[in-house]
C-alpha cells in the first residue's frame, strides 16, 4: 500500500503532458459545477430530507387547532405577565433581521444594559438582583434563541402562577415536563423551550384569576 503510489498513471503507454484546452476546460467545469453541484446536489439533499424527515424539513412548525402557531426553532416575544419570557433579542425577534448585539465584553454599553435589566427583572420577579441568571440578561447570538435556562424559568415561575391564578406546584409540574435535559445526558445544556411551555399553559383548563391580577 505504502510505496511509490504516485506513478500508477505512467508507463509505456503514458499519454504524456499537455497544457492545452484550458479555456474549454474552464467553461465546462464551471457548467458542471453550476448544474451538478449548485442545482442537483441541493435538490437531492432536499428530496432526501423531505422523504425521511418531512416535519423537520418544513421548519418544525408547531400547529394547534389547524393553525400554525410558530416554529420550534424560532423564539417568539412574550411580554404579558401570564407567560414565561424569553431571552432579550438584539433583532426584536424578527427572523428576517436575525442578529446578535455584537457588543464586546469590554463595551460599557453592554455592562450598562446588563445592570439595568438586572434591576428591572429583580423588581418584576420580586427576587434579589444576584438571583437573576445570566442568560436572561444577555442577548443571544441569533436573536431568536427559543430556550431559557431552567434557572431563568424558575425565577419566573411564581409570577406566572400568580397571574394565572394557578398554584406554583401546578405550573411547576408543567415546567418540569418542558425542561429538556442535556441531549443523551451528554451534550449541550439543560433548557426550557419558552414557546412550547407557554402554549401548554394556554392549553390548561382556565382557572379563575385572583382579583386584581387579571391578565393584561
Amino acid at each position: 500500500m505504502f510505496h511509490s503510489t504516485l506513478h500508477t498513471n505512467t508507463g509505456a503507454a503514458a499519454p504524456g503532458i499537455s497544457d492545452r484546452g484550458l479555456l474549454r476546460g474552464g467553461i465546462v467545469l464551471a457548467l458542471i459545477s453550476l448544474i451538478g453541484f449548485g442545482l442537483l446536489y441541493p435538490l437531492a439533499g432536499v428530496g432526501l430530507g423531505q422523504l425521511l424527515f418531512p416535519h423537520q424539513a418544513r421548519g418544525s412548525l408547531i400547529e394547534a387547532g389547524g393553525q400554525i402557531r410558530g416554529s420550534a426553532l424560532v423564539a417568539q416575544p412574550f411580554a404579558a405577565a401570564g407567560y414565561f419570557h424569553p431571552r432579550p433579542s438584539a433583532a426584536g425577534y424578527d427572523p428576517m433581521a436575525l442578529a446578535g448585539s455584537n457588543l464586546a465584553q469590554s463595551n460599557p454599553e453592554l455592562q450598562r444594559r446588563i445592570d439595568s435589566s438586572r434591576t428591572a427583572l429583580a423588581g418584576q420577579e420580586g427576587a434579589a438582583p444576584a438571583a437573576v441568571p445570566g442568560d436572561l440578561l444577555t442577548q443571544s447570538g441569533s436573536g431568536i434563541d427559543p430556550h431559557i435556562s431552567p434557572a431563568a424559568a424558575a425565577l419566573q415561575l411564581e409570577r406566572v402562577a400568580r397571574t394565572r391564578g394557578l398554584s406554583v406546584e401546578e405550573v411547576g409540574t408543567l415546567l418540569a415536563r418542558h425542561t429538556e435535559a442535556r441531549q443523551f445526558g451528554w451534550l449541550g445544556q439543560p433548557r426550557v423551550h419558552v414557546l412550547e411551555l407557554n402554549l401548554a399553559l394556554d392549553a390548561l383548563p382556565p382557572a379563575a384569576p385572583e382579583p386584581g391580577t387579571a391578565r393584561r
Binding site: G49, R58, G70, V74, Q76, G92, Y93, D94
Partner: peptide, 28 residues
C-alpha cells in the same frame, strides 16, 4: 445534510409561513 435535517435544519423550496405571535400584547 440528511443527518442535519433529522435534527431540524429545513430542506424545502417553499417559502416560509407567516406566524402571528401567541402573546397578543407584544409589538411584533
Amino acid at each position: 445534510s440528511v443527518l442535519l435535517t433529522s435534527q431540524g435544519v429545513p430542506a424545502t423550496f417553499a417559502g416560509g409561513p407567516q406566524v402571528v405571535p401567541v402573546d397578543a400584547t407584544v409589538q411584533l
